[in-house]
Every structure is written in C-alpha cells, then in structure tokens.
C-alpha cells in the first residue's frame, strides 16, 4: 500500500474517533490524545491486515495498543482511561460486516430455495461470528493492561520500576 494512502487512513480513523469523543462530551484536553490513539490503533490493524494476519487478531492487537496508550495518557492528561479508550476503539467497529449480517438475517427470514438458503446461512453465520469476535476483542483488548497489572485504578500503575 502507498504510504500516502496508509496515513490518510490513519487520519480518518482519528477523525471518526474525535467525532465520537465530542458526542460523548470528553474534556477538551483529551481530544488530541483520542485522535492519536485511534490513528495508532487503526493503523496497527491495517498494517497487520496488510501482512495477511487474521482480522480478529489484528483488531485485538490494535485495541491492546489503545489500552496501553490510554493508561499513559490518563497519567498525562488526568482523566480515567476509558475516556480515551472508548472513543478511540469505536472506528474499528466492523460496520460493513454488521450490515451484511443484518441483511443476511433479513434474507433468511424470506422464502428461499434450499441451495441459496444454505449459502446465505453460512455467509451470515460467518459474518455474525466475525462481528461478535471483533467486538469482544475490542472490548477485551482495551482492558488487557488493567488485567495484567492487577490494579483497580490506573493511578496506581507505574511505568518505571521502583527500587
């Protein structure tokens, strides 16, 4: 992929996240951080997909990156991690797949021949499972840093080792 196109994607990931951040009324000081996190997470996923990684694994890695960055920014900008992380992962929500799934479900409710029915059924189940697993990896990836450090609050997480 061309680099210009690649970074253009990053820009749109960021803009989508900022739109949601404003909708969720985040503090102004966190907007830039949300943009950077969404771009970084989204580009990580794009890059992994480029090297033919599985979409679910790529999403999980992107979300984990956002999770780690959310704790860094939480210290820097004095706001809880979810304030950064939730708007930042939303651009990775699989909208087209979810659309295809709903369309498939609607088709399945109609009168179909046996062959087309099983074809649509398998496509719909495939899309639906992808949607579900991607959503779970988004939500789970964001939570990974908190789970690994076993702390109740991001304030207690230190990045430097204490002697």
């Amino acid at each position: 992929m061309e680099w210009v196109l690649f970074f253009e994607r990053g820009f749109w990931f960021g803009m989508a996240a900022v739109g949601f951040a404003v909708l969720f009324n985040v503090p102004v000081r966190t907007l830039l951080a949300v943009f950077i996190m969404a771009a970084a997470g989204g580009l990580t996923r794009t890059l992994m997909l480029q090297y033919e990684a599985n979409i679910i694994v790529s999403t999980l890695v992107g979300a984990m990156l956002i999770g780690v960055m959310s704790i860094l920014f939480a210290h820097k900008k004095h706001a809880p991690p979810p304030v950064f992380a939730i708007p930042a992962v939303i651009p990775m929500v699989p909208g087209i797949l979810a659309y295809k799934m709903t369309l498939g479900l609607l088709n399945l409710a109609g009168d179909l021949h046996q062959e087309t029915y099983s074809q649509i059924l398998s496509e719909t189940v495939n899309n639906g499972l992808k949607v579900m697993l991607i959503l779970m990896s988004l939500a789970g990836g964001v939570k990974v840093p908190m789970l690994l450090t076993r702390k109740e609050s991001a304030k207690e997480i230190r990045f430097k080792k204490r002697l």
């Binding site: 253009e8 994607r9 749109w12 990931f13 803009m15 989508a16 996240a17 900022v18 739109g19 949601f20 404003v22 909708l23 989204g42 651009p91 909208g95």
Partner: peptide, 11 residues
C-alpha cells in the same frame, strides 16, 4: 459527527 460518518465511509 458528520465528519466521523464520512470517515467511516472512507475507511
């Protein structure tokens, strides 16, 4: 939010 929608479309 309009721009965010456009961004989704672009992506």
């Amino acid at each position: 939010v309009g721009i965010a929608g456009a961004a989704f479309c672009r992506l």
